[in-house]
Design a protein around this nucleic acid. Structure first.
Ligand code: MN
Ligand code: MN
Ligand code: ZN
Ligand code: ZN
Lengths: 139, 139
DNA sequence: GGTTAAATGCAACTTTCTTGCGGTAAGATA
DNA sequence: TATCTTACCGCAAGAAAGTTGCATTTAACC
């Protein structure tokens, strides 16, 4: 993605354009997979740990990233498709490879299964995490 | 649940019967909801923190508990229905209340939605977390 | 260029979880 | 029931993950 587009992307999400944010956003775009804080820390040693944490938080707050549920003990983030500062909607599934551990966003829209909840419960949305083998580990 | 049944439950899962394990297992049975390490630490101040951690791990290892994915930063565990030392199968959904934060296991069997995965991906199982209002918070 | 509010870097700190080890107790065996 | 073996427990220390406070720097605006 072009420098000017990245910049525009940040501005549309009401975020100031800084080196760290540009680099982190570009990295998410290129990697096409979910990234953890650890991933960023390894990749961007020129930035302070705290700055990277705050970058993740501001991105999440302003609709550039979403947190993906998992049981690994550390948070994992994925790029939002069409979220803005006001509206967060993550109507897509996630895939986690049981072999290499990579998490990816599945872009095919979620076909909400008819869930039969117990009485008096009210559903607002759901997270679906598919576990299995990714295209690399499956071959 | 009776003392003798709890004891039998531990033995069936190849775990030695100790005070801590009996108390923790009973607590899970009574609460009928998912519990975090913090919950246990608050409840069982007579046991060492490390012992509680190791209790959770041994229970998970031997099919008494399963970890439930979430983005809270700390692990949450739920009772297994019919897992043994060898076979872990968690074919049920989870409900997380967005108001009180309580997580519960939904016992109605999962009707696996026909997920259309990208080519070359292979699904083994899936986690479904439903977010919404629990019966207490919905009234 | 000058002003202002936000972002950064550094240090310190909290929370969450793990590891090592000596002492203790559960379960097995006789 | 006494003895043995091995798993479990408590304590201390440490590692990993994430947060907070504050002085300095810089992006955005005029
Ligand atoms: Mn996603
Ligand atoms: Mn469950
Ligand atoms: Zn893989
Ligand atoms: Zn609730």
């Amino acid at each position: 993605m072009k420098y000017s587009e990245l910049k525009q992307n940040l501005k549309e999400h009401k975020l100031r354009v800084t080196d760290c944010r540009m680099d982190v956003l570009e990295h998410f775009q290129q990697q096409k997979r979910a990234l953890s804080f650890r991933d960023l820390e390894d990749r961007f040693q020129e930035y302070d740990r705290v700055t990277l944490y705050r970058t993740l938080h501001s991105f999440e707050e302003n609709g550039l990233l979403h947190k993906i549920p998992g049981d690994s003990g550390s948070a994992v983030y994925g790029l939002c498709n069409s979220c803005g500062v006001e509206s967060h909607h993550h109507n897509h599934m996630h895939f986690k490879c049981t072999s290499c551990g990579v998490t990816e966003c599945i872009d095919t829209p979620i076909n909400i299964p008819s869930v039969s909840l117990p009485k008096d419960y009210k559903m607002s949305d759901m997270d679906v995490i598919i576990n299995g083998l990714c295209k690399l580990c499956n071959n």
